[in-house]
Amino acid sequence: MASNIEPILKDAMTSIEGAIGVALVDYTSGMALGTIGGGKDLDLTVAAAGNTDVVRAKVRTMEMLGLKDEIEDILITLGTQYHLIRLLNKRQGQGMFLYLALDKARANLAMARHQLKGYEGELEV
């Protein structure tokens, strides 16, 4: 099956209102499989590595708490941005997450979260 990472990321960047940057990240290595957007104010390579630590920390915390559950998504709210991390399910990509940075002033968080979930279903890695 051919990978559709690039078109999916492109589509997310244009269709999700307020999107600043999108990345598909392998959190076993901390490296991005694809990125779009970002720029000098948001280095997506740095974001991929940094948010890998965020995801790993949460996974570890859940293990320590004895929670036999899975992370669907993680929301980080900044003063001017939202950062959404959506973990892919096992079938599509074990150990991967979609990362979306949004401009808080332009974004609709509920809509963005819903759209991101949709992309998760379409993604073929």
Binding site: G30, A32, A49
Partner: peptide
């Protein structure tokens, strides 16, 4: 190791 972070 987080290879992304290691590189950076």
């Amino acid at each position: 190791v987080n290879v992304g972070r290691l590189h950076l």
